[in-house]
Design a protein around this nucleic acid. Structure first.
Lengths: 230, 230
DNA sequence: CGGCATCGTAAGAAATTTGTAAGAAATCAG
DNA sequence: CTGATTTCTTACAAATTTCTTACGATGCCG
């Protein structure tokens, strides 16, 4: 069996060590860093398969580190954050992370999520992109060719429209706030009052829905955001 | 295995000692108090994981102590009370408690309930973030996707309705006063006379109950507040 | 330069949610 | 039973959020 290398970056030594124990238990190699810069350093030298990052760290924090990593690589990142009332907010901040978990977390859940990320590797150790083709109720999105079919018919989406739809479809069933969508797609902070996402949603609906006023795929969840029905 | 610290507060020494024996048998550390103030004192000094409180105690009784504890902490509380005709009444009084038990109780039941509360801790000793999905008698609440299913059917709740329901379900069995609900959901002080929570409760019932007038899930506890039946 | 496609903004319309008030109904205390 | 208290119910108006449309800006390609 493949032995995976996992990098854990957290400024709290207890958490770092606890995670190390859980992961070693699952037969993984663990590299530890106490802040973002150290993590980036290890990342250059070692063949890391998964990064577990704490949001809150002195110096380069988890979010900045994610941006840095994403500039050059597509390694899976699992973000950790302190439990907060406003989970959605944190979720919005974790742009670029592949998954996230609130502290205090359940060790079983941590290892389960870590393994789920690692499952995306082939036996050669190469990172395997998640499924190329996603189908949901007659709507087929192909990530490789970046095309969308609705009932066998190809639909021409613009680049931004496609990105929004891909985001929603990849996590179908989950609700994304307008802010979250904006920050994930545009990769810049969202200022309240902007109407852009709504307009793009309208345009996407125009193209993929039979009746844009009664959307079958791209649904609104009032006061929360948008989602693709599972 | 993690060794848990349990605080037992009861004015009757026999009961205190009996509980101590049962719990030590289950490999727990036991701290004892004979009244509420002493319990609060120990709580400050020790790293307590579970509190077992008797309702009837001289000085600060179990109910007042619960209020005091809840002002600052979210530790699980198991309430003990003398058996009475009017179980509901006592149940209503246990606002803020996570579970309760009637005296005389079965030692097996006591340890079972104590362990059930402690199970919510991780190996790190942190209080565990609760599960993503909570199921209670056919009602399924998914915190990640912020959706609610009743008998497999998705129910569309508004943002505030969802928040109220999530609060109640997360601590199902516990009674929340209108004031508590208001302040937890709206995050602003509650002024007596406001009707808002009641109206929202009505609307939630309209959506999740078969017959809103005879609620199966979201029940009222007269003079105290609302709760979700366990 | 002209034609075309894409994008963001603004502004008003439409839809949905939310709070309030007022009276009805249920429950409790004596 | 009676009056007091608490919860329930309904309707309506205000607030908020989303939808829709149109327009101008930008950039690409020939």
């Amino acid at each position: 069996m493949q032995k995976y290398n996992v990098l854990v970056a957290d400024d709290e030594p207890e958490i770092r060590n606890a995670i190390e124990i859980y992961l070693k238990n699952e037969n993984m190699n663990v590299f530890k860093a106490s802040h973002g810069l150290e993590a980036l350093d290890i990342l250059e030298k070692e063949d890391i398969h998964l990064i577990i990052l704490d949001v809150m760290m002195p110096g380069l924090d988890g979010i900045q580190t994610t941006f840095k990593i994403r500039e050059s690589r597509n390694i899976p990142i699992l973000m950790l954050s302190a439990k907060s009332e406003d989970t959605d907010k944190i979720l919005g901040l974790t742009v670029g992370a592949d998954d996230y978990l609130c502290k205090p977390f359940n060790p079983l859940e941590l290892t389960a999520r870590a393994k789920s990320q690692l499952r995306r590797y082939t036996h050669l150790g190469h990172y395997k992109a998640s499924e190329d083709e996603i189908e949901v109720r007659g709507l087929v999105l192909n990530k490789r060719s970046k095309t969308v079919l609705v009932d066998q018919e190809e639909v021409r989406l613009t680049a931004t429209e496609y990105k929004i739809l891909e985001l929603l479809i990849e996590h179908r069933g989950r609700v994304f706030s307008i802010e979250e969508i904006y920050e994930k797609v545009w990769k810049e902070p969202y200022f309240n009052g902007e109407n852009t996402v709504a307009v793009h949603v309208r345009r996407i609906r125009e193209k993929i829905e039979i009746n844009p006023r009664e959307p079958k795929y791209l649904k609104v969840v009032w006061g929360i955001g948008y989602k693709i029905e599972k």
